Amino acid sequence: MPSLPSAASAADMNQVEYLGLCDRTAVEWETLRNYEMFSLSPDGSFPMMKASRSKAVRLADREVMMVGGGRCFRVSLSNHPTQNKLQS
């Protein structure tokens, strides 16, 4: 299989902005599926991703954290632009 292409430098990249939704109710760590995004805060700040049953990855710096359990808020990226974004 071919490898993923990569950008030569940051100058070859575009700036992007993602919209997302954050659950209002916390869920148990065990209910998240692998590679599902979550936040420890109900406002969705500092999103993370569940990597395995006992590991999470902070998306800001790709730091791997060991996790034994707890509660978190699911984060879902939205693929529907808002009216404000369409008018820009």
Rank of each mutant, 00 (worst) to 15 (best):
R58L: 09
N14I: 11
N79F: 05
M13W: 06
P42K: 07
P5W: 02
N79A: 04
S76H: 09
L32Q: 02
M49R: 09
S3D: 09
R71M: 07
N84A: 13
G68M: 10
S6L: 09
S54P: 05
S78Y: 02
A11Q: 15
S88Y: 11
S54A: 12
L19M: 03
M49Y: 01
S39E: 10
M1W: 12
M49P: 00
V67I: 15
N14E: 12
K55C: 07
N14D: 09
Q83R: 09
V67M: 13
S39D: 03
V16C: 10
L4V: 13
M37Y: 05
V27H: 03
A7T: 12
W29M: 01
R58T: 14
Q83V: 10
H80S: 07
V16T: 10
M49N: 01
S88D: 13
G70D: 01
Y18D: 02
E36K: 07
D12K: 07
L86S: 05
T25L: 12
V75C: 03
V64F: 11
D12Y: 06
N79V: 06
E28R: 10
P81T: 04
V16H: 08
K50P: 00
G20M: 07
A56T: 04
S76P: 02
M65W: 06
L77K: 02
S54M: 09
E36D: 13
R71H: 04
G44C: 02
M48I: 01
H80R: 08
P81F: 05
L21A: 11
R33E: 14
W29S: 00
L21W: 05
Q83K: 07
T82D: 05
A60Q: 08
M1Q: 10
K50H: 02
V57W: 02
Y18A: 04
N79E: 07
T31V: 14
Q15T: 12
D12M: 06
V75Q: 00
